[in-house]
Write a protein that binds this DNA or RNA. Structure first.
Lengths: 195, 195
DNA sequence: GAAAAAAGTCAACATGGCTGACATAAATGT
DNA sequence: ACATTTATGTCAGCCATGTTGACTTTTTTC
C-alpha cells in the first residue's frame, strides 16, 4: 500500500547550504489542514469510486445519483445549478443513468418542458449505499474526536464555502432533509430511517 | 451567480403517488457533512485553479508545486507515493513545470539515478501564493467557529484518512514542517538561485 | 404571434487519469 | 565481471469528464 514516505536525502536538511531549496515552505499556519484536506477528501471519494467501477460509472454519476436522490422530482436546471457543470457534461452521464435504469426522467405536469428527475428503486438503492459508505467513514472520524466536534466540523465546512453561497447551500441541505421527512414520496412507504 | 436553488415542484411532495420516487432520500445522519464536504472542497480548490489558468496549468501542477515546495530535494518516487498517480501522468506535468522554469530537477549526489526536485524562485513564489490563498480561506472559516475548533477539525481530517495511512500522513506533514524550520532556507530572505 | 425558457444534441477540444511496452543509467548482488 | 534491480523517462493510445459553440424542439409567457 505505497506508504506515504519521503526519504529526505541528508543533504536536503540543515547541513546543506543549498540555494535551490530557497524560498521553500515557510511553515505557514494552515499547511497541515491544506494537506489533510487533500488526503482526507481523496479517501472520502474513493469509497464510492470502488463501487462505481463495477457499474462502469464514475464520480460524475455518483453526484447525479446523490442529488437526485436527495431532491426527487428536481429539474435538470436545478441539478446544473448544484453541480455547476455544463448541460452537455450532465447530459452524457444522465443519459447513461437513464439507459441503465437508475434514473427516471418524466415531463413535468404543470410545465411540460421540464424533465423531472427521479431515481428508480435500483438507483435509490445505489445512492443509499453511497451515503451509507461515506457516513460510515465520517462517523468513524467523529468518533476519534471530542464529543462537540461534529458541530465544529459542520460550521467549519459551511464557512469554507464561498460566503455568497453559504446560505444557499445550507438551505439546500435543510430543504432536502425536510422533504424527506415530510414524506416527500409516498406517504405510505416508510422511510424507516429515523434518528 | 447561479444560486444553488432547487425549485421543488409541488407535486413532488406528498400529493404524488409516484412509484419512481420510491426509496428516495432517507435523511441519513451524515448527509449534511457529505454535501458540505463536496461544496467546501470544490470552492477550496477553485482558488488556486483561477491563478493556475493564467499559466496554462491545472490542478495537477498545483499538487506538484505544493509538495515539491514542502519537500525540497524529494525524489520523483516520493512524489509518486504521495500523489498516487502513475509516473506517466506525473511525467507530463513535471516536464511542463521544468520547461516553464518552475521546477528544477537535479541528479542526486549519493545516488545519481535519482532526480531530486526543487522549486525555482519562480516556482516557490507561486507555491507560496497558493498556500496563502488557501490559508486565508481556512482562517476565515476557523474564525467563524469556536476557539477550539481548529484542533477538532484537524483531528477530524486525520481520522477521515484511511486508518493505515494516517500515521504516514501526519509524519509527512510533521517532517516537512520540521525541515522548513531547521533552516532548509533562511526565513524572510529571498535567495538568489545559484547553481 | 413573437420571444423566452427548458431541454437535448452534435462536434470538437482540453485535462488528467490510466495501461502497456520499452529504453537508459546507475547501483547492487553474486 | 556480469546479471539484476532500481530510478527515471518516454512513446502510444485509451478513458472520464470537463469545456465552447451552434442549433433544434417543445412549451410557456408576454
Amino acid at each position: 500500500m505505497a506508504d506515504i514516505n519521503v526519504s529526505q536525502p541528508p543533504h536536503a536538511n540543515a547541513a546543506d547550504p543549498d540555494p535551490a531549496a530557497a524560498g521553500a515552505a515557510v511553515p505557514r499556519p494552515q499547511t497541515d489542514l491544506i494537506e489533510l484536506l487533500f488526503f482526507a477528501y481523496r479517501n472520502f471519494v474513493s469509497d464510492p469510486d470502488k463501487v462505481l467501477q463495477g457499474f462502469g460509472f464514475g464520480r460524475a454519476h455518483h453526484r447525479v445519483l446523490h442529488f437526485v436522490n436527495r431532491h426527487p422530482g428536481m429539474r435538470v436546471t436545478d441539478l446544473l445549478d448544484i453541480l455547476r457543470i455544463t448541460k452537455q457534461s450532465l447530459g452524457r452521464v444522465l443519459r447513461e443513468l437513464v439507459d441503465g435504469g437508475f434514473v427516471d426522467s418524466r415531463a413535468g405536469s404543470s410545465d411540460r418542458r421540464q424533465r423531472l428527475l427521479y431515481l428508480t428503486p435500483k438507483g435509490a438503492t445505489l445512492a443509499r449505499d453511497f451515503v451509507a459508505i461515506q457516513s460510515q467513514r465520517i462517523e468513524r472520524a467523529l468518533a476519534a474526536c471530542s464529543p462537540g466536534a461534529r458541530e465544529d466540523v459542520r460550521r467549519f465546512l459551511v464557512a469554507m464555502i464561498d460566503p455568497e453561497d453559504q446560505a444557499a447551500a445550507e438551505k439546500l441541505i435543510a430543504r432536502a432533509d425536510q422533504a424527506a421527512l415530510s414524506g416527500g414520496q409516498r406517504p405510505g412507504k416508510a422511510p424507516a430511517r429515523p434518528r
